[in-house]
Design a binder for these strands. Structure first.
Lengths: 381, 381
DNA sequence: CCTCCGGATGAAAACGTTTTCATAAAACGC
DNA sequence: GCGTTTTATGAAAACGTTTTCATCCGGAGG
């Protein structure tokens, strides 16, 4: 044979590779002495097969090390078993809980998670719709925080029901009919601003997120609502664009500080920008919260160990993930999940980055005690 | 017909759903007046088809909105087009760059990324191997930082060559033969410790990561190497277990502070633990770096805006991701990629969390100027 | 004009499952 | 024991591609 002519290595490598990949249901059937239908049944509905044959088949499977070819199975079933999750970037702490929720349900229901990062490629909603149509995934969850889906998306707006759910996010107005699971960002921001007003602050700045994201725009609206409802009214100069980034938030903070009457409190549209804001305040020799109070949004894993620990709005991230996934699965199964957003509860968690406004603007050193005014230390320890 | 007996809604819903999912290559072929082989060729090797037919087929595709069924294609080709990436949890800032690198190459080469979080399920290397065998993915990248693959893994140790590459990570000794792409953690930790020694510190604590991860154990070894090489020698009491978590690092810091002679510098096995360490130091009314210097590892996105900005070891994360992915693709294509780790360069970036040791232990207030001693402000601004 | 060659195309097999349908065997009621 | 139902199994179709192989056609070379 030709093999004896070649060197031994080739022969050995051939042997080592081939058998693993060639073991199919056919070989198992032959060894067990049954038909392939029976083997298939043993795997998918073992209660419909006799005990003795089941044992024989299982023995054959063990002997051969057979593992069903998922490619063939999914092809036959017409399902990918994949959920595409679109997010801006793996590595943003906020999404940790949401992903845990999604993953938990996915695992339970036999789905795997496909990740697409919008940071690396411009996000077009239509692309994701096409991936469902071309059977690359069974459904889509969109978490991408800055999500400027530019085109109005032929698919999403048509009545071809592509299973899509937004987690936390709210895209543009035209796409508002896509179902979502999230907190009421506007009301949450309203309440956080109210809290600052209650502390006596009158000049309250706002660092907004991405212009293209309804999510942060809702938070901006909530802030404006609260200001409008107060005796102070809105002041456009106090609203700055933090661009959903560390650098942007630092610029925004500098801009607020350069005002003739700089704010004594700043509400940031997310924790990361709050972090950057505090950093910039300190660099300008201002103390938090003695000189300026800061409130964030999200309660990421670092909020509690910042200096000072951050007062922020908590979202039940894991619950959001779970409910988003369940809602998507409903859609995949063909049920009508409607268009209305599903709201989950938010909560303001008061830590040490906020304090009552200083009546005497100069005396910043003797108010360290206000840090404990809300007794929030217990929440951290 | 039965349809006229039912209500209209059923009828309409049927119509709205059916046409999208039933358009296959057959329909396109019929409309274009060619065979399905030709349609397939138009998609996969258009240069092998005549211009006129190509145009006809493309018209038919446009008309029907046909999208090739990826399930069928992958099945036929025997490739999933998926890379499974195993990480502890989405949301850990360090992995952001690595994932960007992986994603970039994946997109270039036509692969998608499947995520598996070990936080939600106990990680067993064998499970991932099986998923390759059962064609759920073409290869595996392991990033999971705490990766206690308990069983010695029948597959990975056998000569069945499952394409697996470790990014950054190094698993247990038995699995050391799995190829990896990473920095030389031991040497990096050695150098970071040396830097603290050069600053005059003599009592240098170390907060270790997860016991089960070679990655952080290597960093521990590097620290011990440096101490051993110095005149001071090793002191086991200065090595504490931070457990790769915020809570663990806080406990570890408290433990170090409770020593009769507490350290004047602490080297943490990653940035997150450094963050927690600094938080705990401040809570104990110690200043960083005046009372205690702190060094981290990873240079995550928050390292530069912490208070104080963190001195830490930078890894070229994106490069690691890219090279990990490329190496995996080589393995998938059947090439022999060997076992030796591929090393990338690290770098110590000095910010403001480190300062020369205080000669007079009491005077902590007048050394603020040391913050600027290394001129690192430029790196942040 | 015949032959040969190369390019374009079509027919059909193949990929590994699941699932339908038919059949054989067993169990059951009378 | 006979007809009827239930249960267990096998044969074969089907899923939508890609790919091999054969065929057809037109043109070049003799």
């Amino acid at each position: 044979m030709a093999l004896t002519l070649g060197n031994e290595n080739v022969f050995i490598r051939r042997l080592a590779r081939a058998p693993i990949y060639t073991v199919s249901i056919k070989k198992v059937a032959k060894i067990a002495g049954v038909s392939i239908s029976t083997v298939s049944r043993c795997l998918n509905s073992p209660e419909r097969v006799r005990d003795t044959t089941l044992a024989a088949v299982q023995a054959a499977i063990a002997q051969t090390g057979y593992a069903p070819n998922a490619l063939a199975r999914n092809f036959r079933r017409g399902k990918t078993g994949l959920i595409m999750v679109v997010l801006q970037s793996v590595g943003l702490p906020f999404w940790e809980g949401v992903m845990r929720g999604i993953n938990g349900v996915a695992q339970e229901e036999g789905y795997s998670i496909l990740i697409r990062e919008t940071a690396s490629s411009p996000p077009e909603l239509d692309d994701y719709c096409k991936m469902v149509i071309s059977k690359e995934a069974d459904g889509v969850i969109i978490l991408a925080s800055p999500s400027p889906f530019s085109t109005p998306s032929a698919y999403a707006t048509s009545d071809r029901r592509i299973p899509i759910v937004l987690g936390c996010e709210n895209v543009t107005d035209e796409l508002a009919h896509i179902p979502s699971v999230r907190v009421d960002n506007r009301r949450a921001a309203f309440e956080a601003t109210q809290y600052l007003l209650q502390l006596g602050h009158e000049r309250i700045g706002f660092i907004a997120g991405s212009r293209s994201s309804l999510l942060t725009r809702d938070r901006e609206r909530g802030y404006l609502d609260a200001m409008q409802a107060s005796a102070l009214g809105q002041n456009r100069a106090w609203v700055t664009n933090g661009d959903q980034s560390i650098e942007g938030a630092r610029r925004a903070t500098r801009k607020l500080l350069s005002l003739a009457e700089p704010p004594t409190a700043i509400f940031c549209a997310n924790d990361e920008m709050a972090m950057a804001c505090i950093y910039e305040l300190k660099r300008n020799n201002l103390s938090v919260p003695q000189d300026v109070s800061v409130v964030g949004f999200d309660d990421t894993r670092y909020a509690a160990i910042m200096d000072p620990p951050l007062t922020t709005v908590v979202q039940p991230t894991e619950e959001i993930g779970e409910r988003t996934m369940r809602r998507l699965l409903s859609a995949i199964e063909g049920r009508d999940i409607g268009q209305a957003p599903e709201f989950v509860e938010h909560r303001l968690i008061v830590r040490e980055s906020t304090a009552p406004r200083q009546t005497a603007p100069g005396s910043t050193q003797d108010v360290g005690s206000t840090q404990d005014v809300d007794g929030s230390r217990q929440q951290i320890a």
